[in-house]
Design a protein around this nucleic acid. Structure first.
Lengths: 235, 235
DNA sequence: CTTTCGATGTTCACAGTGCACACTCTCTCG
DNA sequence: CGAGAGAGTGTGCACTGTGAACATCGAAAG
């Protein structure tokens, strides 16, 4: 066997007095509890128990139960961001700048909704109380910045009149957030996967229409055609 | 003094063994607790205590804590419906059928959002778990029917192409629900009353654009003009 | 007018929760 | 090496949701 002095440093599987990474372990466990059974079936005590630590150990790392939950919300937003980035990465490249801008915008929405459907309880917790948004009222997430860039590109490509640019983030967010929330609620025909993604595409077209103000820019038509023909799969 | 045999029948203010209307009293109290302090600050026991009854008395009227909450959700939906009806009643009559249809559609959204802003915690509870929606996934509320009628009228007035009619309820609902949720979350500039209602009007215009597909129907322009000139106050 | 019975409320009991306090263990640094 | 700070434990308290047995009332049946 190896020298105990070195083995003690890390990688000790047996019960140690100091956990070593309790904070993260608790957040991870809390998240698991939330995802499988909603916010009701989550207690600080059970999270601690499952991690193999006394209940009060959690208070060395979190003020409160709600503080632990806030940490869960934080990783929720980061996870959502990853979904959005993946969705954007999945769109096909196009020579047409307008089509690319439209596709990137739509991909943002696809990632948002995909995250919602895969982690409904987590999303509910993220928007369950006044938390998760920064002082300006936006998520401190790269995803929001990507949305802004996509909208800028839409203007640059001549698809969106410049005077419609202001506040466009919020409008786009409104549609996508509403869709996501209703989807996880099982509203209308949104619970079935196939139907939902078809309706999402409709909703995204509809959102773009609303954002740009009109359908009949020539470049717009071309971009729509580009979308339906080629799209890469998400891994 | 009156004959005791008759006074005993009803209207006894003193402590009686049988409450007489416990179920309603509990729902009312539970609703009050939810509205002032969110779902966390609501316990079956406290509701019972405030009503002046033992905790377990509630179990004669409700299966569960969650069953009581479901009753709260029910009255929430009815209350929301009243807001929508009031908002619709508040729009000015117009000779132009198209303008009237647009206004009725928008009013639905205004009522929805107004309810959300006035009863944020209640709305959160209403959409906090898989509840409140019927088997088809729609709220069993007259408000939804009114939305459908407004959309039909939009088609009848020639503002919305008939081929865009299918699924329009869901799209309208998506925008308005998303707006309402983000508003009560304090997202972006939505927490300030004045800014919010201005943005709501923008969002409603934007939703109509998306629903109808194009801005430049002549009747559409006229209806927009009609909206900005005259609107009655909500009482 | 009694008797009886079902609906409605009460009390007691139990497990589980969030949290405060005082205690113990271990690692690090002077 | 020894002291102190940071991390984890145990005990205790007020509270919760819920089950089971008991108490009370109103109305229907005799």
């Amino acid at each position: 066997m190896a020298t105990p002095s070195k083995a003690k440093k890390k990688a000790r599987v047996e019960r140690r007095y100091h956990h070593g990474d309790l904070r993260n372990a608790l957040v991870e466990q809390a998240l698991a509890l939330v995802e499988g059974g909603g916010i009701e079936r989550f207690s600080l005590r059970e999270a601690a128990r499952l991690v193999g630590v006394s209940a009060n150990a959690a208070y060395r790392h979190f003020e409160d139960k709600s503080d632990l939950l806030a940490a869960v919300v934080e990783v929720g937003f980061r996870r959502q961001e990853r979904y959005i980035l993946e969705a954007i990465a999945a769109v096909a490249e196009t020579a047409n700048a307008g089509a690319a801008a439209v596709e990137r915008l739509k991909a943002t929405g696809r990632g948002y909704v995909r995250f919602a459907v895969r982690h409904p309880e987590l999303l509910r917790v993220m928007f369950g109380s006044h938390a998760g948004l920064d002082a300006q009222g936006f998520p401190h997430t790269a995803g929001y910045g990507l949305l802004s860039k996509a909208l800028d590109a839409l203007v640059a490509a001549g698809l969106m009149p410049a005077e419609r640019r202001a506040g466009a983030e919020l409008k786009a967010w409104t549609v996508v957030h509403g869709f996501a929330m209703l989807a996880i609620q099982g509203a209308g025909p949104l619970h079935a996967d196939a139907k939902r993604s078809a309706l999402l595409e409709e909703a995204l077209d509809y959102a773009c229409t609303g954002l740009c103000g009109r359908l009949d820019f020539p470049a717009w038509r071309r971009s729509c055609a580009a979308r339906t023909t080629k799209r890469r799969r998400v891994p």
